[in-house]
Amino acid sequence: MTAQPPIRALALDTATSAVVTGVVELRDEGPVTLAERIVTDQRRHAEVLTTLMRDVLAEAGVAGDALDAVVVGCGPGPFTGLRVGMATGAAYADALGLPAYGVYTLDAIDRGTPAPEAGTRLVLTDARRREVYWALYEAGRRVAGPAVDSPDTLVAELAGRTLSDVVGESRFTERFGAAGADLVTPTPASLVAVAAERLTARAPAEPLTPLYLRRPDAVELKDQKRKSLLPSATHE
């Protein structure tokens, strides 16, 4: 069988507290990273992302018009950070006439972590407001989630379930009796791996849809202000 030419993709994700971007070649043997940057700077996602995109393209020696696609992490993630990556990825793909493929960030984190031989894996990321985004996986297949809950609620919900692996930041994984890491993010290669079937099939791109799982902070604050203007109830 004749080997297929590699597919070059720019991958990016801003659904966590890190900005992730890289250039990846999808080859017959799987995704191969040509260049990547993972930088923790959640307050400056917009400023950092475009600079990192330029850096990884230069390091990989790949011009924008030599790319075949853009792969973007669509969350779940906090509103402000997530929309930066998605808007940037969509605009970049549109400017170059490239298809953009969206993938779930939790799926990419699972794909980028060696899977347990058997059992159920829990993947967690920080949702802020003392909550976590989570999903369950078995043999690389998502079987529950993505969803958002407080750690206490999630511990209670999964109390009767045996977990063979928990992936996430230590302050969350310790609630399940598991070791964790200081920061857990997808990688450019794992983002591309999740989109591999669509990339290989040259599937038509679909609009990128962000997965927030709750309303943005600005809306909630507006709602709170509106409620504060309502007349208070009087009691006889």
Rank of each mutant, 00 (worst) to 15 (best):
M1A: 05
M1Y: 01
T2V: 04
A3S: 14
Q4H: 15
P5G: 01
P5A: 08
I7C: 07
R8P: 04
R8C: 05
A9Q: 14
L12M: 15
D13M: 03
T14C: 13
S17I: 10
S17N: 15
V19T: 15
V19D: 14
G22C: 06
D28E: 13
V32D: 01
T33M: 08
T33Y: 06
T33D: 05
L34F: 09
A35Y: 09
E36S: 14
R37K: 15
V39K: 02
R43E: 07
H45Y: 14
V48I: 12
L49Q: 07
T50G: 06
T50A: 08
T51E: 13
D55F: 01
A58M: 00
G61C: 09
G61L: 06
A63D: 00
G64S: 13
A66V: 01
A66N: 02
D68P: 14
A69T: 05
V70H: 08
V70C: 09
V71N: 04
V72I: 14
V72Q: 13
G73F: 15
G73T: 15
G73I: 06
G75A: 02
P76E: 00
L82M: 06
V84K: 10
M86I: 15
T88Q: 03
G89S: 11
A90W: 09
Y92D: 10
D94G: 15
L96N: 12
L96S: 01
Y101K: 13
G102P: 02
V103K: 09
V103W: 01
L106G: 08
P114W: 05
A115D: 02
R121C: 06
L122Q: 03
L122N: 05
V123L: 05
L124V: 07
D126H: 09
A127E: 11
R128T: 10
R129G: 02
R129H: 08
R130Y: 14
V132N: 06
Y133Q: 00
W134A: 12
W134L: 01
L136P: 03
E138P: 09
G140D: 03
V143R: 12
V143C: 11
A144C: 08
A144G: 06
V148D: 03
D149A: 09
S150D: 13
T153K: 10
L154F: 01
V155H: 05
A156L: 11
A156R: 13
E157L: 12
E157F: 05
E157T: 11
A159L: 03
R161D: 03
T162L: 07
S164I: 04
D165W: 13
R171T: 02
E174W: 09
E174P: 02
R175H: 06
F176R: 11
G180F: 10
A181L: 09
L183S: 12
A189N: 03
L191M: 04
A193F: 00
V194C: 03
V194A: 03
V194D: 02
A195W: 03
A196P: 12
E197I: 06
R198Q: 10
R198H: 08
R202M: 04
A203V: 06
P204T: 09
P210T: 10
L211I: 13
L211E: 07
L213N: 04
R214Y: 14
R214M: 05
R214H: 12
A218W: 01
A218K: 02
L221Q: 14
D223G: 14
R226H: 06
S228C: 00
S232Q: 07
T234Q: 13
H235G: 02
